[in-house]
Write a protein that binds this DNA or RNA. Structure first.
Lengths: 207, 207
DNA sequence: CAAGAATGATAATTATGGTTCTCATTCTTG
DNA sequence: CAAGAATGAGAACCATAATTATCATTCTTG
């Protein structure tokens, strides 16, 4: 695995430490923002030293980019494997929406901290957010044909817009949950995927 | 107007400067995050000095809290005046939802920068977000009775949850637009309130 | 129109935390 | 089992930006 801004480790100990640093970041970011997570604290948490960190990662920002890239890679893999849209071709709209929502929520649950950190400066620090935005676009593109197929042949233009808005509802609600957890539904709520799916389906049907 | 963390100005010039500082913050935050907006830059933008700033505001954070409080105050006023829910009692569900969505979007448009800054550290810096969360709760509480009245008498519990989720969709989508503007609809899009209202209504009906 | 309070300009202070440096230690490999 | 590369500990360095201190200027008011 080659990541930009990350000097490849040639010795085993170093590879393990790199891995541990990435794992620790994923864990610690569940509680602090990236700015609040100092390199020193990060290293201390796994008994490494700052020097070690910088002999591996070109900068704190590069470290975070790597973290983010790994999270996105996992999602892309899922999109090609178990969660592949093709498996739902021909299924009813409600079922497709549920699969989409489950996939999204599941991923968010796994990468909550990384996602939050990336989101926190999405608007002002575009580079930090780009991989996630890219991922969102990719997911939507993969599902779109199936949704359009369920939506009748007329008003193609309008239907496409409806698909975009359905995803906007999905992503928006999830983002707000991750950032602010306003309730009533939280990320851990078992009903969440179902509710989101219902909202998406309604938005699509009502187009 | 007394604001916590703000030393009241006793001379006119100073009052004007306080006002100008708050106004400048509202404007500048449209482009940068709060962290990126240095006190020095803020002051320079209106030809004031850092010392002047600190003779008025106890800290940068207090300054931002004041900014936020003013924005919330405006919303609360609107809720008591033109945008009062009571004016829509007895109207159809779709119309009520549209009024809600219009109110929310309109407010976001007016206070986009302040809202974004508050949102950016909502999760990790609870104090910064609290007034907004409070406002959201208040808005929802004011509209809830009208919505429930439109939703049939049975399954009260379920209906209340549906109202909560409808607002979660609304707020979530708006928050994500403000933070990341993912499209297809942007904050400035004339269709936005209508689309959001439709989604809310669908979520409510499908409860 | 003074006297004293309020204000504000400027420069110093400080805290934080990312980044770099140095050198001892540990691997790898011929 | 050396020799040289890779690694890592720890401290030093530095940049940024919030905050505070000092003192001249401007208001207010009796």
């Amino acid at each position: 695995m080659e990541l930009p801004g990350v000097n490849p480790a040639r010795q085993k100990r170093s590879r393990e430490m790199t891995e541990a640093l990435l794992e620790a970041g994923k864990r610690l970011l569940a509680r602090r923002s990236l700015a609040e997570l100092s390199v020193e604290e990060l290293c201390a948490s796994i008994g490494a030293s700052v020097g070690a960190f910088y002999s591996r990662f070109q900068s704190k920002e590069a470290y975070f980019q790597a973290l983010q890239l790994l999270a996105c890679r996992r999602a892309t893999e899922a999109l090609a494997g178990d969660g592949a849209p093709e498996r739902f071709a021909g299924r009813p709209l409600a079922e497709i929406c549920l699969a989409i929502a489950k996939g999204g929520v599941g991923w968010m649950r796994a990468y909550e901290g990384v996602a939050r950190a990336a989101l926190q400066h999405g608007g002002t620090h575009p580079a930090r957010w780009t991989p996630f935005k890219e991922l969102g676009r990719e997911v939507q593109e993969r599902w779109r044909p199936l949704l359009l197929a369920r939506l009748g042949r007329s008003a193609r233009r309008r239907n496409e817009r409806a698909v975009g808005f359905a995803f906007q509802l999905l992503y928006g609600t999830m983002v707000n949950i991750v950032l602010n957890d306003p309730g009533p539904l939280s990320l851990g709520d078992p009903d969440l995927p179902e509710q989101l799916a219902r909202a998406m389906a309604a938005a699509l049907r009502g187009a």
